[in-house]
């Protein structure tokens, strides 16, 4: 699986030659949750969180009316839950690389699908040099986009983790999330002939 991610990543990066650069920035917010978790033999209840993601994306290349983009974003998660009746909450910051393919449905509607590659490394950990095996998390993402104007659009996404990791990695950043947001696109200015 790891090799497939790497190949996909390299494929899209090397395809940059054909790219028609178009940038965008986006802001998403939403709700995240876990279905059932068990930590050290203790059941975790009400494991959920609020997510805010802010970042930018670059169109790598397009074919017909579809295009592939790679982004970079900062993700903040405010999660909470309780284990054996003891409540806890956590604030988490991570960086995310969203890799998306966007397809037009109509003039104003777009659908997108892809993966979020996200770091799992905690720099507050004094021993972060040794890390854990799961330095990366991968979420599958599917979404819709409604174009308000040529520059602005509304977005909605559903993401869920697809890596097989132990529950301990999801307490601070739940497996599933539903996000809505806004996106601003920057088109390449074309020089007009005099």
């Amino acid at each position: 699986m790891k090799k497939i991610y790497l190949l996909l990543f390299l494929f899209f990066i090397t395809s940059d030659v054909e790219a028609q650069p178009r940038r965008s920035i986006f802001l998403n917010t939403g709700y995240s949750f876990n279905n059932s978790l068990q930590i050290n033999n203790g059941k975790v209840k009400n494991s959920r969180g609020y997510v805010i993601t802010f970042g930018g994306a670059l169109r790598l290349f397009s074919f017909k009316k579809n295009y592939v983009s790679l982004g970079i974003a900062g993700k903040t998660i405010f999660s909470s839950g309780s284990r054996n009746g003891e409540k806890f909450n956590a604030s988490t910051v991570r960086f995310v690389f969203p890799l998306r393919i966007t397809l037009p449905l109509t003039e104003q509607w777009r659908v997108s699908t892809g993966f979020n590659f996200q770091n799992n490394l905690d720099f507050l950990d004094p021993d972060f040099r040794l890390g854990y095996r799961y330095l990366w998390r991968v979420d599958y993402s599917a979404g819709m986009k409604y174009l308000l104007t040529n520059q602005w659009s509304l977005t909605a996404n559903a993401d869920f983790n697809i890596r097989n990791m132990s529950d301990a990695f999801f307490l601070n950043d739940p497996k599933f999330s539903v996000l809505i947001g806004i996106e601003k696109r920057f088109h390449k200015r074309r020089k007009t002939k005099k």
Partner: peptide, 22 residues
């Protein structure tokens, strides 16, 4: 700018837990 943003996010990549546990 992208590289700067990446570095910034990496540096602040962290988690802070709080709990009610007495």
């Amino acid at each position: 700018n992208l590289l700067f943003f990446l570095m910034l996010t990496l540096i602040f990549s962290c988690t802070k837990f709080n709990e009610d546990f007495e």
